[in-house]
Amino acid sequence: MNKTDQLYQEVILDHNKNPRNFKELASPTHKAHGINPLCGDDYWISIQVENNTVQDIGFMGSGCAISKSSGSLMTSLIKGKSTQEALDLKNTFLELIMTDCTDECREKAGRLKVLEGVKQFPIRVKCATLVWRALEAALSQKDQAISTEN
């Protein structure tokens, strides 16, 4: 497989064309905006947390295939997980695409492995991490749940 094909694998192309959870929640408990001013990637993450569990999560906005498929995979994997598990997965993902990660990390990353090809395109790494950074920002507003009303 050449580098381009490694980057744009079938799974990624599918998530780009049909992004899962591509929506904005009506009354999320947590919300954050992620933008990449350099290329114009721009997403809102909205999350519904109950009893420390991600009941529902959506992402909405526009951007490249890498950022969109990353958002689609992220939201699919995180729904139903505890907030701690969500943040752990975020760390695993960052390790996967920003370091010479271990096989153990790859194992933990599971389906996110399809994004590892991004590593070979340093300027695209930010595209893949954008939604995850937004997830982190949203969940870190622990005590001050943001409603759509303010």
Binding site: K17, D41, C64, A65, R124, C127
Partner: peptide
């Protein structure tokens, strides 16, 4: 149509 400029840039780069 349906393709972000950033992805085009990467493919052309290759």
């Amino acid at each position: 149509e349906g393709v972000h400029p950033h992805d085009i840039g990467t493919i052309l780069d290759q």
